[in-house]
Amino acid sequence: MLPTLLGRIQTRLFLMALIGGPVTALITLALPLTGPYGPRYQATFIVLGSVAIIGIVWEIIYHVAMQWRWEKDWPTLFGLLTLVPEGILVGILARMNWLPLLPGAVPVSAFAIQFIVVWVCVWLFANGPMRTPFIRWRFNGGRLV
C-alpha cells in the first residue's frame, strides 16, 4: 500500500465496518463463547470497535515509522504482520475486561480466532478486491472521501 495518514485511518475504519462487521457477525456464532447471543455480540463488536478506534493511534505510529522508508510505501507483508502488536494489545485489554462496555472478560481463544480471521479478511480485501469498486482509492493514499 501507498498510504497517507488520513488514508490509513479512513481505510481502517471503512474496512473494519465493511468487512470486519459482517465477518464478526458470522463468526460470533462459532466462537467458543458462552451465554446468550446478546452479550456475545456485544463483546465481539466491542472488540472490533476497539481494534478500529485504537487503530487510529497505531496508524499514527505506522505513519511515523514509514517516514524512514525512502519510497514511503507500506509493504504488503507489514500490513499483515502488524496484527501481532495490535492483537497483543487489544487481546490483553479484552482479557482483562478493560475495554468500555464489554460485558465480561473475553477468553483468549475466542479473541484470537475473531481477531485473526477479521484481520486476514480485511488484509486480503485491501490487497486486491478493494480496488474494484473503489477505483480512485489506491491513487489517493487510501482516502475514500
Binding site: 501507498l2 497517507t4 519510497e71 489506491r138 489517493n140 493514499g141
Partner: peptide, 17 residues
C-alpha cells in the same frame, strides 16, 4: 537503488499528495 523510476509513493501515497 529504487524499485521503480520514482519512489513508490509517487503513484498514490505521500509523494503524490
Amino acid at each position: 537503488y529504487q524499485g521503480f523510476n520514482y519512489p513508490k509513493s509517487t503513484w498514490g501515497g505521500q509523494v503524490k499528495a
